[in-house]
Nucleic acid binder design. Structure first.
Length: 776
DNA sequence: TTAGGGTTAG
């Protein structure tokens, strides 16, 4: 309701000055119309017959008159004509004049007749009506003739000069026809010239339509505002709503912009007048709100429309449900389902599809299956919610099962779907299952399913290809992945940006940069659909490999392809140049990213702080840290880690320890394993093993898990000081923490323990047995 | 309804 009153007042304020009539006083008096004229919205409606004259009498008169007017106008027999039309006590009715005029066929001839009538009708009591009707007929004839545009407007000017009032049909015809041929200014002149009393709903709708289509949005909104006035002559109707909302939901308004609030405000204002968006428009509005992450707005407008009495259908509910699934808002999803039941809106297969999908995506597969069982239970269900599940629902569930490692059940569900009519497994079904088996490492089953789908005549898609390629790459079978791609390309399934991203990343990871570059070139050559991600991946791979010149050349290609670098790519490049010690390029990148409006984040700052600190430029490091804080960014554990590491390298362990102590207390950033490792390593190297051991104890207190590197650092220190018993204790701790010894651990311990004749302990340690107790 | 990527301290 808040929304409602807000936007209502907003509009009435901006449109307040427009409630005054648009026409000047003289114009409105010239165009004053008799009140008994028809206000029928149909523009081509004939005028009413006079009450004392039957349509039958009229028809005879019309036929006779038309006969007399058959010859060329210069051969008209005016005596006979006068006798027929004006000798009677009553002049011909507006209706007869309309028909006579119109049956003359051509506007020029009709105009001649009109001239004749206007000279003779002057004294009749309803002469104005008669002339208006005759004039309406001329307009209708003119409209059908070629090059009518100017003719229509000339006729209008003539009528205006001669003080012949337009009736509503004529006005509507002029506004519509002129608007339609692009004579918008003229159409608006006609509309604005009209007496406010003549502007009924139909006419205003026609005007608003013309205004919106020609971009005169503010004019349209003015008219609309008048129509919202409860005292107005032409109030809004369903047609007004359709015209305005169709326009607003187009989502592109040349030269004007509307916020969702504006649109929602208007919808509600229409609602107060009993005019509602149809299901399609309401759905479109909710979808648009959802797209812009305005879930609450969508929720409100949906409920307000319902409260005001609008007819809400399942499609709109589905749009809102989709919106709610984004934020995993199960509470409101439930509320909505309850509301649907209350309002007797039957959920359709899409409704259930949305709910099942959102449950699956939150890994609540059992609940999804439960709902599935419930809806497929048949029509006997007490609450009437039953639908035939469709392929999409089956696929959603199969994917859900596969994503939580229940691919065997997924397979069973595929067999179940075969038993249901019209629910045969399709490419998506197989893609989900292949991915499911691949992700748990069962490549063979994945491959089997791939062959099975082909045997069943189900075509693999590019997603099938990518699933298989990803699996082969993850298992290090890069050449098989390439072979598979080539095989599929021969069968007509071309790789896309996703395929190449997977392959390029994998080849970079095994440091096969030339192959990664070759694949990239191949992708560009094939004219495939490269996207920004594939460029980012290669840039990252090249930077990681220290090939900054190549990275920059890919950046150029990315720009040529009209993509732009994002924050992470800039960070990757800055880091790459830092590692190559190319300070000028680091500067260039930072400047470029700021010029591009990409704001550096804490990773950017951490990278720079670390670079300067490592280079011994601690002052610069601190200056950048201050800038980071000034920019509103919060230093992270990585920031402190970089500083602590720098002071450790510098030999200033005290300063390092000071920062370490302050980060927990002052900065509320608890030290992590890496920071402990840096300090333990440094302290051990400085022979301060006791202090290092106390840090390990503090890790235990703070719940920071040590890792293999922690113990490696410590073992080095213990070895230097020959603290054998301590070493055995920590070997046991290592086992407790499930930290596997790596080659560094083995190197240190092998050398040390064999020298002191304790090699048996090492063997036991490697086998996972306790070693300290056995000594005691 | 199904597929891909990249960053900072040790």
């Amino acid at each position: 309701m808040n929304t409602l009153s807000l936007s209502a007042s907003k509009h009435s304020k901006s449109f307040l000055n427009l409630l005054k009539p648009q026409t000047s006083k003289t114009q409105s008096s010239i165009f004053l119309l008799s009140h008994h004229l028809s206000t029928d919205p149909d523009p081509e409606t004939e005028p009413n017959p006079k009450p004392n004259q039957s349509p039958k009498d009229d028809d005879l008169l019309i036929t006779q008159a038309v006969e007399l007017l058959q010859p060329n106008e210069k051969d008209w027999n005016f005596d006979q004509l006068h006798h027929l039309l004006f000798s009677n006590s009553a002049a011909p009715s507006p209706r007869s004049l309309f028909h006579i005029t119109r049956r003359l066929g051509a506007s020029s001839k009709a105009l001649k007749f009109f001239e004749y009538v206007s000279e003779n009708v002057a004294s009749a009591p309803d002469s104005t009506d008669s002339l208006s009707s005759s004039f309406q007929a001329i307009l209708e004839l003119a409209k059908r003739e070629p090059t009518s545009q100017n003719k229509l407007y000339d006729l209008y000017k003539m009528a205006k000069e001669r003080n012949i009032p337009l009736n509503i049909s004529s006005a509507a015809l002029l506004v519509r026809s002129l608007g339609m041929v692009g004579m918008v200014d003229e159409a608006l002149i006609v509309f604005n010239d009209l007496d406010p009393g003549l502007k009924n709903t139909h006419l205003r709708n026609a005007a608003i339509d013309v205004m919106l289509k020609s971009g005169c949005i503010d004019d349209a909104l003015k008219v609309l505002d008048e129509m919202f006035d409860p005292k107005a002559e032409g109030r809004v109707d369903q047609v007004t709503g359709d015209i305005v909302l169709s326009y607003l939901l187009k989502r592109e308004w040349p030269g004007r912009s509307f916020s969702e609030e504006d649109i929602v405000g208007l919808v509600l204002k229409f609602g107060e007048h009993g005019v509602f968006p149809d299901s399609m428009k309401l759905t479109k509005l909710i979808t648009a709100l959802c797209r812009n992450r305005k879930t609450n707005k969508a929720w409100d407008v949906f409920h307000d429309v319902m409260k005001l009495g609008g007819d809400v259908k399942a499609a709109s509910c589905n749009a809102l449900l989709t919106c709610l699934t984004r934020g995993n808002d199960f509470k409101r999803m439930n509320e909505l389902m309850v509301k649907m039941k209350e309002m007797d809106i039957h959920p359709d297969v899409v409704t259930f599809g949305i709910v099942i999908n959102s449950l699956c995506k939150s890994r609540r597969v059992d609940e999804a299956l439960e709902l599935f069982e419930k809806i497929s239970g048949g029509r006997e269900q007490s609450d009437g919610v039953s639908t035939e599940p469709d392929v999409v629902i089956y696929n959603t569930l199969i994917d859900g099962l596969c994503k939580v490692g229940r691919q065997e059940e997924g397979l069973l569900l595929m067999e179940k779907m075969r038993l249901q009519n019209g629910c045969a497994p399709n490419t998506v079904t197989y893609n989900c299952l292949i991915d499911g088996f691949n992700k748990v490492g069962d490549i063979e089953r994945g491959r089997e399913l791939f062959h099975q789908m082909k045997e069943e005549g189900i075509s693999p898609s590019v997603i099938t290809l990518n699933t298989m390629v990803d699996c082969l790459c993850k298992h290090g079978r890069l050449n098989s992945a390439i072979d598979f791609l080539n095989e599929m390309q021969r069968d007509g399934v071309k790789g896309n940006a996703v395929t190449y991203t997977t392959l390029i990343t994998s080849f970079c990871n095994v440091n096969n940069i030339s192959m990664a570059m070759e694949l990239f070139e191949q992708m560009l050559r094939d004219g495939g659909s490269a996207d920004a991600i594939v460029y980012y991946s290669l840039i990252s791979g090249l930077s990681q490999a220290g090939r900054m010149d190549d990275a920059i050349s890919v950046v150029s290609k990315l720009k040529e392809a009209c993509f732009s670098l994002d924050l992470i790519s800039y960070n990757v490049l800055i880091n790459g140049f830092c590692r190559k010690n190319k300070l000028d390029m680091v500067h260039e990148m930072v400047q470029e990213m700021e010029a591009a409006g990409v704001k550096p984040d804490s990773v950017t700052y951490n990278t720079l702080i670390s670079y300067f600190c490592k280079a011994g430029e601690l002052t610069t490091g601190h200056r950048i840290l201050s800038k980071m804080i000034n920019e509103g960014l919060v230093p992270t554990a990585v920031t402190f880690g970089a500083l602590i590491h720098a002071y450790c390298l510098n030999g200033n362990t005290d300063k390092a320890m000071k920062i370490f102590r302050e980060m927990g207390s002052k900065s509320k950033v608890p030290p992590n394993t890496v920071i402990y490792n840096i300090l333990i390593d440094t302290l051990c190297k400085k022979n301060e093993v006791e202090l290092a051991i106390s840090l390990i104890d503090s890790m235990k207190d703070k719940g920071v898990r040590p890792n293999t590197a922690t113990f490696n650092a410590l073992f080095k220190g213990l070895k230097e000081n020959n603290l054998l018993e301590k070493a055995f204790e920590f070997m046991d701790q290592m086992t407790e923490h499930a930290c596997n010894p790596d080659y560094i651990t083995m190197e240190i311990l092998t050398e040390w323990l064999s020298a002191v004749g304790e090699i048996e302990k090492l063997r036991r340690f490697v086998q996972g047995y306790e070693v300290a107790a056995s000594t005691a």
